[in-house]
């Protein structure tokens, strides 16, 4: 089968559409999380979203929507717990990560959901993506991009220097809350394509790779977008041809780019 025949398959086209949406959104959130040493929240929310997926299986409704609901609620919980300072920030993450994984396994065992379908949600597969998923993802993506555009300058200011931003009158607490909710949105919408267990990589690795190039903030975002887009599209094709897990392939391509940049920088 040649390259163009691939597009005769509806699921391939849907997979690519979904992939492009996710690839464009993830680094936009990622840059703010990575620079604020918040990378691990992506991983925590990804595990939380698994509980949402399990709930979707059990209730027989769209796992993306249940994942979205559960992840947004948990993200607010994590932020609140961090603000009260009664537990350390990373302890809050650990509590949510292990707690939600426990809930997910219970829900899955109740719904007898341990099947290949679950495997697709764990590691991503373009076969999982339905047309409704693509529309849902598109709507979420528009919300994420619009909100980021609205708060772009506030987010940069807080990310660089939270204290000065506060003195300048930036509503720091609100903006932090918005960022974490957007992260929850992004993670939920990335599930079908890259899988629960590898979403954090998509949010973090393109940004970390782009940061090595040491450019301005805007240029760094553009580089991260390019790395992410290339990896996702290449990953979809390679995984399809070689019959590999889509998520795993995408992440390995991104890592390869990161290593190439590091090697190039050393010379």
């Amino acid at each position: 089968m040649n390259f163009f025949e691939l597009f005769q398959y509806g699921f391939v086209i849907r997979g690519i559409e979904a992939g492009i949406i996710v690839a464009l959104i993830a680094p936009l959130i990622g840059i703010f999380l990575v620079l604020r040493r918040y990378s691990l929240i992506a991983d925590t929310l990804a595990h939380v979203s698994l509980a949402g997926v399990a709930l979707g299986f059990l209730l027989n409704i769209s796992p993306i929507l249940t994942a979205l609901g559960v992840t947004v609620i948990s993200s607010l919980g994590i932020e609140k717990m961090r603000n009260t300072k009664r537990v350390y920030g990373e302890s809050a993450l650990a509590l949510f990560l292990s707690g939600s994984l426990a809930i997910a396994t219970i829900l899955l065992s109740l719904g007898k959901g341990f099947n290949t379908n679950l495997f697709n949600y764990l590691f991503g597969s373009i076969v999982t993506v339905t047309q409704t998923d693509v529309y849902t993802m598109l709507v979420l993506a528009v919300i994420v991009v619009t909100t980021l555009a609205f708060f772009y300058k506030e987010l940069i200011y807080i990310t660089f220097d939270e204290e000065s931003a506060q003195v300048a009158g930036v509503p720091v607490r609100w903006i932090n809350m918005i960022l974490i909710v957007l992260a929850a949105f992004t993670i939920s919408l990335s599930i079908p394509i890259i899988g629960v267990l590898l979403i954090a990589a998509l949010i973090v690795i393109p940004v970390v790779a782009a940061l090595q190039l040491r450019r301005s903030f805007t240029t760094t975002i553009l580089y991260a977008e390019a790395i992410s887009l290339f990896s996702v599209i290449a990953g979809i094709f390679v995984s399809f041809y070689l019959n590999l897990s889509t998520g795993g392939t995408i992440v390995l391509i991104m890592l390869a780019i990161f290593i190439l940049i590091m090697a190039f920088k050393r010379q």
């Binding site: 620079l35 300058k153 940069i156 200011y157 660089f160 220097d161 000065s164 931003a165 300048a168 940061l211 040491r214 450019r215 301005s216 903030f217 805007t218 240029t219 760094t220």
Partner: peptide, 11 residues
């Protein structure tokens, strides 16, 4: 931090 001098001042 990936910010130019101008980006910092614009904050």
């Amino acid at each position: 931090f990936p910010a130019t001098v101008e980006e910092v001042v614009l904050m």
